[in-house]
């Protein structure tokens, strides 16, 4: 009932352990599964899971811990990722394609190309990134549901 105030039809939260590369990617797989079961179009599912994958990797590579929340509303999907960790000293610089502070270990695993944040930007319809150096990072992004089939049952739940 309280969710109806904000028109949030689903809210799921996932915990991400920093440095745990073994399961890296598993949360975006879970998000994808939820969206697929809910009946969203493959375009929305793909864009959301690419952005979620990159966001999840950022927490694993750079933070000590974090939480990723998925909100489903009638008009958009929203993902919020909050982490505790080293943070980003210069957000503008970090947004540039190819810029990376990744360690050699991260590179060896096939990450740290400096493409993560721009991949998120390119696959979403709005993105906010704020960070306190030495404390952590807050990332939010939206995927618009404009043009989506509104008969998706989840969007009508509790109508």
């Amino acid at each position: 009932m309280s969710g109806a105030e904000n028109n949030i039809h689903l809210h799921e939260m996932f915990h991400i352990a920093g440095g745990n590369f073994t399961n890296a990617g598993s949360i975006s797989s879970q998000v994808k599964k939820i969206l697929k079961e809910a009946g969203f179009s493959s375009r929305v599912i793909r864009r959301t899971s690419i952005a979620t994958f990159e966001a999840e990797m950022n927490v694993i590579c750079y933070a000590s811990r974090g939480n990723l929340s998925l909100f489903i509303t009638p008009d958009f999907l929203k993902i919020v990722v909050e982490d505790e960790g080293i943070g980003i000293p210069d957000v503008d610089l970090a947004m540039q394609e190819g810029y990376s502070t990744a360690s050699e270990r991260i590179h060896e695993l096939g990450f740290g190309a400096g493409m993560g944040l721009s991949n998120i930007k390119n696959n979403t319809d709005g993105m906010i990134l704020t960070s306190k150096f030495g404390q952590g990072t807050h990332l939010e992004f939206l995927i618009s549901l404009e043009g989506e089939d509104k008969s998706v049952p989840l969007l009508n739940a509790g109508g």
Binding site: F21, A24, G25, S28, S29, K32, R46, I50, F53, L109
Partner: peptide, 15 residues
């Protein structure tokens, strides 16, 4: 040449 599990998650993401 990536053989870590992440490549499978990425494959799943990209269908």
């Amino acid at each position: 040449g990536i053989i870590h599990p992440q490549v499978i998650y990425a494959a799943n993401t990209m269908d």
